[in-house]
Design a protein around this nucleic acid. Sequence first.
DNA 1: GCGACAG
DNA 2: ATCTTGTCGC
Length: 239
Amino acid sequence: MLKIHIQHRWDLNEKEATSLQKELANQVITQDQLPNIQYIAGVDVAYSEHTDQLIAAVVVLDAFTLEVIESVTVKDAVQFPYLPGLFSFRELPPVIKALQQIEHEPQLIVCDSQGLAHPRRFGLACHLGVLLNIPAIGCGKTRLVGEHTEPDRLRGSSSALIDEEQQIGSVLRTQTDVKPVFVSVGHRISLETANEWILRLTPRYRLPETTRMADQLVRKALKELENEVDVYNILEIDQ
DNA sequence: GCGACAG
DNA sequence: ATCTTGTCGC
């Protein structure tokens, strides 16, 4: 069973959440502290309009074959609004519930969002990494903060993502002539190593296999929820 | 004041 | 995030 390293309340207001981020940001480790990586987890979350719930999926992949070893999906109530910069307070509760049901503990977690590339240097990937004390990478599809130049068109090219005179991440081309992704440190990993892992996880597609697999699960669960609601409505009408 | 703003 | 339409590549 996966251990929670740091516990804190989740029923916070905007101001409390922001100050908690500033406090926890000091715990982020930006150097490599990686054990032998056998399993990698991918996490993704989606919102169901039909049931007003969040759906979180966690997928565990074999680090070398990239085959799916295990997966868990969790439905949960929304308890925090979407506010740019406070994303993790909305999405992490169901993600942590899902991770606690995983039998194969991952040595690396790849998140579909930012890590250090965040206004207070504490994006979702940092938050999850620090709470679990597990190495984590943020790999977002779009930018939250920072400026950058366009990376060269070839797979593996990257350019620096800069905010307030410091490099907070990299803009990495995972496929030649395909829109790049935004990689940043989550916890216990260097940016260089994070980039290497993202490249290893993208042998074929723009997004890491971890993210793709988790996204597939989330979409499947979303569709099933819609069908359940439809069946329920039909039964109601029949009565 | 205005625009920008992970999912 | 989600939705929609159009276009391109396999």
